[in-house]
Design a protein around this nucleic acid. Structure first.
Length: 644
RNA sequence: GGCGGCGUAGCUCAGUUGGUUAGAGCGAACGGUUCAUACCCGUUAGGUCACCUGUUCAAAUCAGGUCGCCGCUACCA
């Protein structure tokens, strides 16, 4: 059996719906899939839903449903949404399916047999929301780095000996430059792994939901470990025949789950069971939803289908074309190295310039001229060399972009032939040729139509419905074979083209022109009240007043367990009592501190240090050796008095 | 703190291996055209290629340093 070209997206958690950020991943995979199909590959495009986490169980309970009913409902919703964006997956796997459970248990057992799993006890913080374990030091303000709640768990668990795979992983990444893309992510992964991998806990106490550890029903497989196995489960593994679908040629995902999971845990797991590693892991960046008024809470999500509906209403295009336009937008901006920002204006602009003005209008004017000058029949003859060159260049650029999965560059390549066409029309001026009965007219019109035929083929992976519409207006069947794109044969002479029908009605952007407050260019104060960086510039008295300092008295002091520098203090500041953690153990003992007056910054954002909350900061000078020299009022000051 | 990256026209960015007048798209101004969805085409903007110092016959492109921004990572208060 010949090997299929396998493309995967992550499986999505069933507790959210796709928004323009997460749809990005699936779209990228779909564009890759459609391109490879046109190139003649037998594609296996896999997506699905992740349904086993503790989070799912809790969400179900909150919704007053049984977990199974809950995931059935939401998973099917997911499955229905993707086709609405013309996502054509070949398989949709759910982690509650028997095939997945079997694969996970087989995977676990093999790792156990090979000695990569041992039992131990785990104690630490667990973020249910992202189903991730964190070290004490990972926490920020008592929350996960992502700002989620964490809970302390202490259990006897199974551990995966990931540490053993550090060197093989590094070697593989170094030896395969395209294993992790883009390159900036690869560097991050390398430095992450070089810092040292530790063994990971891969099971949890069985909450009555999840995949039981083989031979130990008291435990379920840790959801991330479980989830990753979907990729091979869907290929049929461990049953015969999986080799035709694994390894994946490309696994698409967002950058957030690349480093720890897909580029570290996942390949280590595969090495453990001795399965081949995927060819490429691509972690794109995010598309942030931003409006002019930035709302700090990430509440304003943009749903791709809503954008499409809005466009269809405002521009008057068909719903199909509107969805294609959204696909084109997402493909065009496909952020890789850094995050991009979505704005309605930017979307509208791209629609008008690239799709309405360039592509749509080029088709429109070319067809109009065909009817005007050659009775609407595709002329024969030879395509002019510069047009042929432009066509070849665009194809080559598209191919080159897709080798490294640069969907954004591919979109640009597809449009490049259209941009050429508009210039070409202007240069060759068919209307002038017609007027003078110049024999070059036929070749020029043919060249124009072939450019459009090429654009149809190149844009098809990104805008399938639009491509069909272009083909229809050219009076030709859809062009779905890569080698035929741009060929003379793809444009049979004598075929009657249809009358032009605008595919992308232009948006009138003038009426909703927002009043630009150019005359009052007030410097927007940064909405983030972040701790002001210590710039050595002058500050005003107002700046200084922001720092609230008060006199406090140390009531209790004890070394903070698990730390070698930190001291945990209870400080009375006037009426209130605060817990402060300070890195002063090097120079002070608890006895030195108790009863002593100190200067405290009382409006510093609280922080967790070694898991203990610190609600302020002691002022101290820095000694030459880096130690602390505490500030103290010259004589006993009134309790809780301000300092300035 | 460590590692990595970035800082190029008003805006968004290309410029992997150093070499003639530094590019594209968008926006703006001006001009042209009429086949077309008031579209398209061309020209222009005098860009200190963040800054400094080096290497070189020659640097946006290499080395060192400075400033600013970002990512990853870290018992940093």
């Amino acid at each position: 059996m010949s090997k299929k070209y396998t493309i995967t997206t992550p499986i999505y958690y069933v507790n959210s719906v796709p928004h323009i950020g997460t749809a990005l991943t699936t779209l990228a995979a779909d564009v890759t899939s459609r391109y490879q199909k046109i190139r003649g590959r037998d594609v296996f495009f896999l997506t699905g839903t992740d349904e086993n986490g503790l989070k799912v169980k809790e969400a179900a309970e909150k919704a007053g449903k049984s977990p199974m009913d809950f995931v059935d409902e939401i998973s099917s919703k997911f499955k229905e949404i993707w086709p609405g964006l013309y996502i054509e997956f070949d398989d949709f796997i759910r982690t509650t399916e028997p095939r997945h459970r079997e694969a996970v248990q087989a995977f676990f057992s093999i790792l156990q047999e090979k000695g990569h799993i041992y039992s131990g006890s785990y104690e630490g913080w667990y973020d249910v929301s992202s189903e991730t374990f964190f070290k004490e030091s990972d926490l920020v303000d008592g929350l996960s780095p992502d700002g989620n709640e964490v809970r302390w768990v202490k259990e006897d668990n199974y551990f995966f000996r990931m540490s053993a795979f550090q060197e093989p992983l590094l070697a593989h990444i170094e030896a395969n430059p395209n294993f992790i893309l883009p390159e900036s992510r690869k560097n991050e992964v390398l430095s992450f792994i070089k810092q040292g991998l530790r063994d990971v806990c891969i099971s949890r106490a069985n909450p009555g939901w999840g995949i039981p550890v083989p031979g130990d029903d008291s435990q379920v497989v840790y959801v991330w470990f479980d989830a990753l196995i979907n990729y091979v489960a869907a290929t049929g593994w461990p049953n015969p025949g999986w080799e035709s679908r694994w390894p994946a040629e490309v696994q698409w995902m967002g950058k957030d789950i690349l480093t720890r999971f897909h580029a570290t845990l996942w390949p280590a797991m595969l090495m453990g069971v001795e399965l081949p590693l995927p060819e490429a892991l691509v972690g794109h960046a995010w598309l942030m939803s931003g409006t002019e008024k930035i709302s700090k809470s990430k509440g304003n999500v943009v749903a791709p289908l809503d954008v499409a509906t809005s466009l269809a209403t405002r521009a008057g295009c068909t719903p199909e074309v509107a969805i294609d336009a959204v696909r084109y937008y997402m493909a065009s901006v496909m952020p890789m190295d850094t995050d991009a920002t979505y704005t309605h204006d930017e979307f509208d602009r791209l629609y008008n310039t690239d799709l309405a003005n360039d592509l749509g209008n080029a088709l429109n004017r070319s067809l109009a001229m065909s009817h005007k000058f050659v009775d609407g029949v595709i002329p024969g003859g030879v395509v002019e060399t510069d047009a042929a060159q432009a066509i070849d260049d665009a194809k080559a650029k598209f191919d080159k972009a897709m080798v490294t999965f640069r969907v954004d560059h591919a979109a640009d390549a597809a449009l490049s032939v259209v941009r050429f066409l508009n210039k070409y029309i202007d240069t060759r001026a068919p209307w002038a040729l017609a007027k003078n009965s110049d024999p070059a007219l036929h070749a020029v019109l043919r060249s124009m139509l072939l450019c459009l035929r090429t654009a149809e083929g190149l844009i098809r992976p990104i805008m399938p419905k639009t491509a069909d519409a272009i083909a229809a207006q050219l009076g030709l069947p859809s062009l779905t074979i890569w080698d035929a794109i741009g060929s003379e044969e793809s444009l049979p002479a004598g075929v009657k083209v249809s009358l032009p029908q605008p595919i992308f009605p232009r948006l009138d952007l003038t009426k909703k022109q927002e009043p630009k407050k150019m005359d009052t260019p007030k410097p927007q104060p940064a909405p983030t009240p972040a701790p002001a960086p210590e710039v050595p510039t002058e500050i005003t008295i107002d700046d200084f007043a922001k720092v609230k300092l008060k006199v406090g008295r140390v009531l209790e002091a004890e070394p903070l367990e698990g730390s070698d520098k930190l001291m945990k203090l209870q400080v009375v500041i006037g009426e209130e009592k605060r817990q402060i953690v300070a890195g002063i153990r090097k120079n002070y003992t608890a006895e030195d501190l108790i009863g002593r007056q100190v200067i405290v910054c009382v409006n510093l954002k609280p922080a967790k240090l070694r898991g203990t909350e610190s609600q302020g900061m002691l002022l101290a000078a820095t000694d030459t050796d880096g130690g602390a020299i505490l500030l103290q009022p010259d004589r006993e000051a009134p309790e809780g008095t301000g300092v300035r």
